[in-house]
Amino acid sequence: MKAKTTRLCLLFILLCSLPVFYSCSDEADDFYLFEYWEVMLNPEPPISEASLSITGGTKLGIKGGVAPYTAEIADGQIATAYVDENNDIRISSLKLGSTSLMVKDADGRIIKIGLKVVNGKQSFSVNSVEARIIGIDESLLNEQQKEKLEAVIEKIKDEADIQATGGIAFSYDQKSSGKVTIVTGKENTPEIEGSFSRSTSESGTTFQITINGKEYDCKFKLPERPDTSKSITTRDLGPIPYWLVEDVTEDYKSDVTGLFGINATSLKIERIYIGSFTPLR
């Protein structure tokens, strides 16, 4: 009787232990990649596509597996990838094309998915056009001179290639360059097409636009709002406009120096398009 009771107890302990063992095994088998979204789910769903499409670049998370991880792109001329300090995969596109991403954990388990670099899209919609002239102390001007200066500013605004309701569409065929289409916002004026290259710095993003052999340097800037309390968030302030700043000094410096007889070396004339800028997608 005692032996029978002992066997029943051992069987009971074994049955109770089974779910624990299976649970640990399931957890260890979790090894997949997921995308980061503005609203994340818990647990994060794995990437289900056989091929992932990206534009400029992306960040992928790793679920499960055993660190350290490695990431490798089959064709390094199309994209590059590395695992950062947070064990996220950082992918940067280099040119259009299809390749694959392979992620490997310390136990030798492998995830492989297709990777396709596609045309990225970005656009800027113009709401208004302004102009400013830097290098003139307006406090030293008389009323007649101020009127002449204002006339030059209005001329710069009126002669802008893009007016309100117009805009610029950027289509990337490489990481930082591609084709550009300009909608002028003027009646009976066709769209203007050209090419662009993009560079970024702390002061903003610069697009060098080439149309019919002529180059235009345009810088996108996010203007600071004055008198803003640090406790106020961007969302409280509402939409923040972007500035597209075009340096037009060479085009209009003779209009200004001829009126005021100032040194052109200290003069800077800018045309400012104010509007909204969509992120690269």
Rank of each mutant, 00 (worst) to 15 (best):
D236T: 08
A81T: 12
L52W: 03
G97S: 04
K157L: 10
G178T: 11
L237K: 05
I192C: 08
T233Q: 08
P241C: 07
Y242H: 12
Y69G: 01
G65R: 00
G194T: 06
Q144T: 13
W243H: 15
F170R: 00
T234Y: 10
D88V: 05
A151C: 04
F260P: 05
L141N: 08
G65T: 02
R271H: 10
A3W: 10
I91Q: 01
G185T: 04
I78N: 07
T257V: 15
F170W: 08
Y69F: 15
L14P: 01
T205I: 13
Y242P: 01
E250V: 11
K175G: 05
A81K: 03
L96P: 05
C16D: 05
P239R: 04
K95N: 07
G56T: 10
Q122V: 06
K175P: 00
I111M: 05
L52Q: 04
K219N: 03
G108K: 02
Y82C: 06
I274F: 07
A160C: 09
S177Q: 14
I136P: 00
T257S: 12
P279M: 12
N142H: 09
I162N: 03
I91F: 06
V152M: 01
N119K: 14
Y69A: 00
A164K: 08
T257L: 09
T257A: 08
E250A: 15
V183C: 02
L280G: 07
L244N: 06
E193V: 14
F170A: 09
D247N: 15
G238M: 06
A106I: 08
T189N: 14
N119P: 03
S266K: 11
N142L: 08
T205H: 06
A50V: 10
L60C: 09
S128K: 00
F12H: 04
I73V: 15
E224L: 12
A71L: 08
D75C: 10
I262A: 01
V117C: 05
D137N: 15
C218F: 05
C9D: 11
S23E: 11
K146V: 06
